[in-house]
Amino acid sequence: MILTGRLGIEFPILQAPMAGAQGSELAIAVAIAGGLGALPCAMLSPDAMAEELTAIRRATSAPINVNFFTHVPPEPDAAAMARWHAALAPWYTEFDLDIGAVPDGTGRRPFDASTCDALEPFRPEVVSFHFGLPEAALLERVKSWGALVLSSATTVAEAQWLEAHGADAVIVQGLEAGGHRGMFLTDELTSQVGTFALLPQVREAVHLPLIAAGGIVDARGVAAALALGADGVQVGTAFLCCPESTISTIHRRALMSEAARHTALTNLYSGRPARGILTRLMHELGPMSEDAPAFPLATAAIAPLRSAAEARGLGDFSPLWAGQNASRCREVPVAEVMAELAEGL
């Protein structure tokens, strides 16, 4: 298989890159346990990315996946931001916050030339993308290092597009998956289907290696994915409660509670659909809102509410990202999770 053979990893098990929930420690632990660890870089500056990659290289020589977003930053839209601020105003009043003091900024940066410059000295073995692929010139630079290029597809059409535009393998992201949907050819949520419905359809439509993602948390899920045509699996939620993750106590508590049984897609935290545990914000405003500005501009105005609520021990405005199956999210070391998953190979 392209992952285990070309990369020299023991298991075709990928750790999902989870921005805001992990740093280098989780990636290192997965790599040492025989899988492919991942470092999410969409929220890191080039300097911060270099620091994390340096830490990884000091800890292990195992292959690593470095992940980026490829969204197009939206044009400023004062009217859209005004609508968003008006929608959030009642909660700003409740927490005695000044909505006029919300800073500009997106919090997430797409893969660009400056990021590519900072990444090149490290020449990671795998570079993965969310929301499509970068422009052709950047993609060729990445491939010139010998890196394997992965990207997420949420429909058959997206998988075919990735095959036609230079991806080396496709992450087949089912509707169950936590965090941001990788959808990029459509914004129609009704086009999104579950992992085990999507996977065999993509297997018939493309010739690239496939990595199944979404709802896979144990050996049974791994075995099912392989039986339906996957060459490997990508796992995220099952690692979130491990001590190597960086999630908050609030997030960790929610993942191990009955609340984790109810997740939904929401655009409230970033402006783009992402799956997380239901929060007060999602209940009261509705998980999907036309008032949320384009990705990733929604984030800035949510951040003060999140901080104020978390200071009171509440996750009311926190993005509690999780997939639909958090049943194996436990406070155990990464190595134990990896061993359980590997039993399904």
Score class of each variant (00 low, 15 high):
271 G>R: 09
239 F>K: 00
257 S>G: 01
222 V>I: 09
276 G>D: 08
255 L>V: 03
294 A>M: 15
247 I>S: 02
227 A>V: 04
229 G>R: 04
291 D>M: 10
260 A>H: 01
270 S>G: 11
248 S>H: 09
249 T>H: 14
305 L>G: 10
253 R>N: 03
242 C>Q: 00
240 L>P: 06
266 T>C: 02
295 F>M: 08
243 P>K: 00
274 A>S: 08
241 C>M: 03
275 R>S: 02
278 L>R: 15
281 L>I: 15
269 Y>G: 05
290 E>I: 15
227 A>L: 04
314 L>D: 15
240 L>F: 05
303 A>S: 14
305 L>R: 03
269 Y>V: 02
307 S>Q: 15
235 V>K: 10
272 R>M: 12
244 E>W: 07
268 L>N: 02
255 L>G: 00
302 I>H: 11
223 A>K: 12
247 I>W: 11
272 R>F: 13
230 A>H: 06
321 W>T: 01
225 A>C: 08
263 T>S: 04
274 A>N: 09
288 M>I: 15
296 P>G: 11
253 R>G: 01
286 G>K: 07
294 A>H: 15
235 V>E: 06
252 R>V: 10
296 P>N: 10
312 R>H: 12
317 F>S: 09
244 E>Q: 09
235 V>R: 04
309 A>Y: 09
256 M>A: 05
236 G>P: 00
279 T>V: 13
243 P>A: 00
225 A>Y: 12
328 R>V: 00
264 A>R: 14
230 A>L: 03
304 P>S: 03
312 R>S: 07
263 T>E: 01
236 G>L: 01
251 H>M: 09
299 T>H: 15
225 A>S: 13
260 A>Q: 05
294 A>F: 14
283 H>R: 15
272 R>Y: 13
311 A>T: 10
259 A>G: 12
226 L>A: 06
328 R>I: 00
270 S>V: 08
277 I>A: 02
265 L>V: 14
326 A>L: 01
225 A>V: 10
235 V>L: 08
299 T>P: 13
287 P>V: 04
295 F>S: 09
256 M>Y: 03
305 L>A: 08
293 P>F: 11
226 L>V: 07
292 A>E: 09
239 F>S: 02
232 G>N: 05
314 L>N: 12
226 L>Y: 01
237 T>M: 01
293 P>H: 12
316 D>Y: 11
297 L>C: 11
252 R>C: 03
271 G>S: 12
272 R>S: 14
